[in-house]
Design a protein around this nucleic acid. Structure first.
Length: 418
RNA sequence: GCUGUGAUAGUGUAGCGGUUAGCACGGUGGGUUGUGGUCCUGCCGGCCCGGGUUCAAGUCCCGGUCACGGCCCCA
């Protein structure tokens, strides 16, 4: 029997309703913040991902050779494509560029709960704005979305930090340049790997024991005043985060946020504020994550432009909504079922359906010769509100019988009044 | 890459050595009904693949395939 590719999903109509429901909420949250939707091809040149950033992503690339012998890859994330698009029109686009997309992204890896080889990842980005205002605006988009699906700050928290925290700590012990992103990637695993494994990897990067303990102690902080005393009152990281929390409070979303210096993010290209949202119960992997990446364009051979954004997968959020009982029960959306009694009235039923469709209703016309019993059952199952019956006596006087399936009331309506 | 669990009508499942392999939904026909949602009823349809153990295998064993989890890793 023909089977789908491992790690991919089929969306049957009932799944598709749910997906559309979710995407509609992604779109609304972005649109109400003035973001415009864009798209790009699923297939890109492989070197867009292997060039410089995120060395780890390379092993999970869904890449292959095309018929012309070119190395191509299914996009593992949207940001490089977006960067490519922005770079191509850098001079022509009015800034700030506020764009969003819901691309299907691919990675070749072992499948697990909340994680397939393919998923849809809502991406929201702002280019050309270098202040934390832009980062705060993104957090506002996120919270709008969470609220629109019925989640509260009791269900989720958004942990915020900044790459500058690490940069300052590491800078003070002489870790700079090439070593910095590598250390970030290691530190990102701190809560997933045992202490000594982290220490071993850090010492490979040339950190001494004292350095390692000062890094780990700063990353354990979850309070801005502690961070301030650790990094000094003139620390750019501290003032950046302080301002970000103040802005969040102006947006009315401060109860969703918490400072967590251990948030680093695995991707090498982040440069400023970074954040990820987790379920408070701690049962699921991160719901979304993002941050500022001001220097991505230069790694792709262009001129840098400040940028910040987040990615938000469709799988973990659905797991969370299911756990919280927030997955809606969506009907098919069909409003009327039209059926004729007998083959003689088949043509009449088609005219009736057309008339109703022109008036804007979603009409399911019964195509085969079915019994009345079937039509009722069918209307019931698909959640239609009305059954429109084309019957001999009524039709000969120019009427159809319409039964409201919720109330059970029925009435004859003239064809012209449909 | 390592590892655990599972695989029974189209779907979801029960059965744990001998059963006509059961049930629900579904599909299809009939009865009841106002040509009419409920209800009653007939029928359709199944043990993943290949070996082995046994008088007897859906059931036990081995291998394979696939699915779903977990680890490593990571959006």
């Amino acid at each position: 029997m023909a089977q789908g590719v491992r790690g991919t999903r089929d969306f049957y109509p009932e799944d598709m309703r749910l997906r559309n429901w979710l995407f509609d909420r992604f779109r609304s949250a972005a649109r109400e913040h003035g973001f415009e939707e864009y798209d790009a091809p699923v297939l890109e040149h492989e070197d867009l991902y292997t060039r410089k950033q995120g060395e780890e992503i390379t092993q999970q690339l869904y890449g292959f050779e095309d018929k012309g012998g070119r190395r191509v890859a299914l996009r593992p994330e949207m940001t490089p494509s977006l960067a490519r698009m922005v770079m191509a029109r850098a001079g022509a686009l009015p800034t700030p560029i506020k764009w969003f997309s819901i691309p299907q992204c691919w990675r070749y890896e072992r499948t697990q709960r909340g994680r397939g080889r393919e998923h849809y990842q809502w991406n929201v980005d702002i280019w050309g704005a270098d202040g934390v205002e832009a980062d705060a605006e993104l957090l506002s988009v996120l919270v709008s979305f969470f609220r629109s699906v019925g989640l509260t700050s009791d269900d989720l928290s958004i942990r915020v930090s900044s790459r500058k925290v690490l940069e300052e700590v590491l800078g003070s012990i002489g870790v700079t340049g090439e070593a910095f992103p590598a250390v970030c990637v290691i530190v990102d695993k701190m809560d997933k790997l045992p202490q000594d494994a982290i220490a071993a990897q850090l010492s490979e990067q040339g950190l001494g024991e004292d350095d390692i303990s000062s890094v780990t102690s700063v990353l354990g902080l979850s309070d801005i005043s502690q961070l301030s005393s650790a990094l000094g009152s003139d620390s750019p990281a501290v003032s950046e985060l302080t301002e970000l929390f103040q802005l969040a409070s102006a947006y009315g979303i401060e109860e969703w946020l918490s400072l967590d210096a251990s948030v680093v993010r695995g991707l090498a290209y982040y440069t400023g504020p970074v954040f990820e949202a987790h379920d408070r119960a701690g049962e699921l992997r991160a719901v979304c994550g993002g941050g500022r990446y001001d220097r991505l364009l230069s790694t792709l051979g262009g001129k840098d432009m400040p940028a910040t954004g987040f990615g938000f997968g469709d799988m973990v959020i659905m797991e969370l909504l299911a756990d919280k009982g927030l997955v809606p029960d969506l009907p098919s959306g069909n409003e009327d079922v039209v059926m004729s009694l007998g083959e003689d009235l088949r043509h009449a039923a088609m005219s009736v359906a057309s008339k109703l469709r022109e008036s804007g209703r979603s009409v399911d016309l019964v195509l085969d010769d079915k019994r009345m019993k079937w039509a009722f059952k069918h209307a019931d199952r698909t959640g239609a509100q009305r059954l429109v019956m084309v019957m001999p006596d009524e039709w000969s006087s120019g009427n159809v019988r319409i039964k409201d399936l919720d109330t059970g009331e029925e009435s004859d309506v003239a064809f012209d009044d449909l």
